[in-house]
Design a protein around this nucleic acid. Sequence first.
DNA 1: AGACCTATGCAATTTTATTGCAAAGGTGGA
DNA 2: TCCACCTTTGCAATAAAATTGCATAGGTCT
Lengths: 150, 150
Amino acid sequence: MDRIDKKLLNLLQRDASRTNVELADEVGLSPSSCLRRMQRLTKTGVIDRIVAILNPAKAGRSIKAFVSVEMKLHTEQHMRRFMDIAAAEEAVSNVYAVTGQTDVVLMLRLRDMEEFDALCDRLFRDHSNVARFYTMMVIRTGKEETAIAV
Amino acid sequence: MDRIDKKLLNLLQRDASRTNVELADEVGLSPSSCLRRMQRLTKTGVIDRIVAILNPAKAGRSIKAFVSVEMKLHTEQHMRRFMDIAAAEEAVSNVYAVTGQTDVVLMLRLRDMEEFDALCDRLFRDHSNVARFYTMMVIRTGKEETAIAV
DNA sequence: AGACCTATGCAATTTTATTGCAAAGGTGGA
DNA sequence: TCCACCTTTGCAATAAAATTGCATAGGTCT
């Protein structure tokens, strides 16, 4: 993992649709060398996958929110059960077990507030193991990276 | 945005490295039609970009955390200033202004706890506008999608 | 029914990725 | 220092994939 690998990874994390010749040119290698590096980074798993990132608004899910959840029972079994149920929801994009005042953090991508209301019913109000939940609607986004600085 | 578009978007959000012929086959269209749909979805901005997703552990940033920050002063100017400073940090991958008990949520991707300590010094302890901050270290991830359900 | 617009599939063409191979660069040991 | 070994590189040929033109099919509105 030298300087060129890092440069390549940073380029690919911004835009993986560019041609190999362009990338090669930018990192200062021949196309074949550049391609082989990309293949190696993929084979060794540094590059996990190549994906399309959609525009949330145009894809119909422009409302973002975090919900921080405090559970009643904290056993492995109960935690896992709640996380699985949450993960099965379309509007739930991320689920994390966390340390601190609450136990689970959910990241939501919502179509509208009706969807949020219905989701709350299913996940929090009907769910006997939730003690309390705190909703944080996202007002503004200052930085939103899929990229990892290498 | 018909059923085929949605299918195509879901496929591309999982794996955008597949060939057009494969995708065409899967959605039940000819390669040229499939490609034209992808071009249209890109041109209209539904597809924002194509990126490489790295394996956080192999890229050297395996520790994830949320920090929920309560500000002292909530004017537009002060909020924006703090968010900009946070966004400039390599370890800060996402910055959100939110409603609720706190004002800003940061998502961190850390190399190690030393990096976290140094970051706290710069962002929270040295920063006069931070009233209080709550750290939530991610223990376990139950779902982590870059995808948006369409 | 007819005009019009868009989406489709095929096949030709262009562009891009991939591979073989010889040479260059780097590393560790005698 | 020199040599054997392994990896990376660049070039050029080859293979694969994307892209385009065009005629046709499907839908919609009048």
